[in-house]
Nucleic acid binder design. Structure first.
Lengths: 343, 343
DNA sequence: TCAGCATGCGCAAACGATTGTGCAGCTTTA
DNA sequence: TAAAGCTGCACAATCGTTTGCGCATGCTGA
């Protein structure tokens, strides 16, 4: 069992100083060619690799970015993290991973742990329940930049990457209208989510734009649990004039809604058509994927969030001038019709 | 913008030495009560938190475990990583995350990056293509323990956690036999995967146990791509006596196989029944989930892998005696009938 | 009264690497 | 031929923290 070789070890074996070894390995011009060669050869032999911990410790930089998301098992987030990882690798960064499980306490604990690890920055998609931001503002105070993505905070003073679903929702209502649907219902998410407000505004605008009347009986809410969604469906189906089209908050709500409709012997996408958000690959395997989806590009969001982070970090080291402005990146949400892979 | 406070800063403000501050904060008995109080109070005020980078650097420990998996988007792995994370948090460890994308080159690159970050240990599920292990043996050489899970290497000299699917497969064949099926086909994964061999042996044993004859025409292979699975299905359906039951390598192969069957206007689970491995939550949303599945407990595997890792690390610090034996943990794979949630 | 011990704290080395400075010895140039 | 410049290397400080050792001071007991 060998120890990982150090610069010291090389110096001792070759009877030179550690500084000479350090400079030789980084091709410093003031080191003689012969010495360089000897050193590099021995380094190669020993399988020397610089101790990142030591370097980063001295440079006060770790090249580690913390990433906190609600649930990795949600495909949206696993795709997002893939985008983050891809961008990170390209710039020699590594990522520390943590889940909040949509619990603010756990979110706080994870963020603390990452702060202890002295991550260079934090990329986070907030937990549904998060309404206090002290644990995150604490990071700002200590010059650890935070980039939010998808589930971003309501205030302006933050770097964010997100999809604005307003326009996508307007388009979706328009699409349904053009297909002849008039009784368009909407199962929205929790009020406090920004994403819910955007969708809601888009829905109202979309309905109005088609000269239809907004009927609040057609709007239900779910806390995103299966029971809650089933409950919303129950109410919609009990209406005197039940909807002929249902827009659901996301693909998971979609699947739960479809499940409920089937239980009621409703012919999905015949009696009632279902459309949704997210366009996740798994839906292509389900019996009744949304006829049309608002694509939110999770991979792209993750990628952009990471690139933004790197940009911020570079600015921090380059200019000593503290940049007090915040980056806000709004990505387009586009309407995607379901690709018929079956039959 | 404040800097993160250091022990030095506290020492300067209180006109004591850094060693006194360090000892005071860790309740050393030789530090006076009054001094301790003053120091602790100021530390609290400044929001002091020890610089983990510095401590770990000195202690040659990072409390970071590298985790490398093929694809986070596969539910099996996202569940596994949740188990790993849960166990890690419980013991104050954090996890560095990387994906191999089933590419040995990328796997190597990720492992190298983690080695540079001086992770305390590495938990890995091998890429499908990995058949050289130098990049991982390099870690062993430098006393960075490696725990493999699920996709484990063929050799003995390794810590492993996995499900042996042999018995599960025997049981599955038995289940089908009891239900009256006799022409039981099998779409297996790539030969080089251990998991394929286990399943194959189980299949053969299962068939023989029921006094049926093993018909190699009933056994097809897939490289796990959709095309390859469709191709395997094509061959099976073209047989003079096509199967009445099909065992697929995993839930993704299952979904692709079902998709193909539907294209051929075959009544799934009526003309042919499909059974599979993994029992992933998403299959409950699909039109035709496997009638029965061999549950592989990804969360449990991840959890156990992490616990094993911590055990190994503790042994390393406790006894200076190097433990040369390897831990091999075989988890039971149990047969699970599909929970009918629809209708 | 003084050795001996406990108390309370500071000094300095160490972890692995980077980097400014200094100092030889050699070569160049006026 | 001596000042000036270049070449090739070593020394030492530094990052934040821990920890063995040592040095005062005050107290105890014989």
């Amino acid at each position: 069992m060998e120890k990982l070789p150090t610069i010291k070890e090389i110096a001792k074996r070759l009877n030179v100083s550690v500084s000479t070894v350090s400079r030789a390995l980084s091709d410093h011009p003031r080191i003689g060619l012969g010495t360089k060669l000897k050193i590099k050869q021995l380094a190669e032999e020993l399988g020397y690799e610089p101790n990142a911990q030591a370097i980063f410790f001295k440079q006060k930089k770790t090249f580690v970015i913390g990433v906190v998301i609600p649930f990795i098992r949600e495909e949206f987030f696993s795709q997002a993290i893939s985008g983050i990882e891809a961008a990170a690798m390209e710039h020699q960064y590594t990522i520390l991973f943590g889940q909040s499980h949509d619990d603010p306490e756990r979110e706080k604990a994870v963020v603390e742990a990452m702060k202890k690890q002295r991550v260079d920055g934090l990329i986070i998609s907030l937990s549904k329940q998060t309404n206090k931001y002290e644990h995150l503002e604490a990071l700002n105070k200590f010059e650890i930049p935070v980039v939010y993505f998808d589930r971003v905070p309501p205030f302006k003073e933050a770097h964010k990457v997100f999809c604005n679903l307003y326009k996508g929702t307007v388009d979706m209502v328009g699409w349904l209208f053009n297909k002849g649907y008039r009784r368009i219902a909407f199962i929205n998410g929790p009020d406090k989510l920004n994403a819910s407000k955007e969708r809601m505004n888009g829905y109202i605008e979309g309905i109005s734009k088609q000269k239809l009347k907004v009927d609040m009986q057609m709007v239900e809410k779910t806390d995103l649990s299966k029971e809650s969604t089933h409950n919303a469906m129950k109410k919609l189906l009990a209406l005197k004039h039940p909807p002929t089209a249902i827009i659901t908050f996301n693909d998971y709500v979609h699947m739960d809604a479809v499940q409920f409709a089937q239980k009621q012997n409703i012919l999905v996408n015949k009696d009632i058509v279902f459309v949704s958000y997210a366009n996740l690959p798994i839906t292509s395997y389900t019996a009744f994927p949304p006829l049309v989806s608002v694509e939110q590009y999770p991979y792209g969001q993750g990628e952009r969030a990471m690139e933004l982070m790197i940009k911020i970090l570079n600015e921090k080291t380059d200019n000593k001038i503290i940049n007090t402005s915040f980056y806000v990146e709004e990505m387009p949400a586009t309407l995607v019709a379901y690709q018929q892979t079956i039959s």
